[in-house]
Design a protein around this nucleic acid. Sequence first.
DNA 1: TCAACACATCGACGGCCGTCGATATCCCTG
DNA 2: CAGGGATATCGACGGCCGTCGATGTGTTGA
Lengths: 108, 108
Amino acid sequence: MTDVAACCAPITREAIDQHSATELARSLKALADPARLRLISMVAAHDDAEACVCDLTGPLGLSQPTVSHHLKVLVAAGIFTRSQRGTWAYYRLVPGALDSVARLLVTA
Amino acid sequence: MTDVAACCAPITREAIDQHSATELARSLKALADPARLRLISMVAAHDDAEACVCDLTGPLGLSQPTVSHHLKVLVAAGIFTRSQRGTWAYYRLVPGALDSVARLLVTA
DNA sequence: TCAACACATCGACGGCCGTCGATATCCCTG
DNA sequence: CAGGGATATCGACGGCCGTCGATGTGTTGA
């Protein structure tokens, strides 16, 4: 929904306005959950850096609806892409998405 | 409380376990709020990279108890330090704290 | 066409979080 | 020592979020 993180200077380099703060907080909220962090890690580590829901539900130890919910949040945050092939839905990291967020936090 | 962010490889480089995910999520939760992001930015931009509550309440547009609450959260997360001098409490960024979190998110 | 499968959506529940006003605590000044 | 000012803590309220079971949707294959 928002790729706010892809534009500006680190928040410690120049003052951040209310709107930018809200947008960055939205991205960080999407990341600030153990289950979603593990999903990111698991997808990145999976073969071809891609995984379907069925690959993730078991190892994560959460119900299938809950996993789908977290994946939807990550897609909405611009961190994952979703591509449906047949019955399966494959999720993949958006290149540079995490880096954009990280760049806004760094102080150096 | 936790400096979990200061040790490991980026989450996209190797699989993250449940415990590490919880700890990183805790740090990210502390950052995932517009008011706290603006506090970080305002403190970093302030003279001598340091500010007291009275410097922050007005510009932030929130009540003094709420500002104190957010500052406490950031201190607990290891992002701010607090030093009391006389009646005033001065808050300052912990060097490298944000970078440690950012390092765990980066993919490159 | 029907059954089975993968996944999404829905509705509900419990808990956590941001915010505030009121109040307590601490420190300085006179 | 008394008063005032800066900050922290408390208690409460409303809203958001993670989780689940039940159900809906769409695709595959017999």
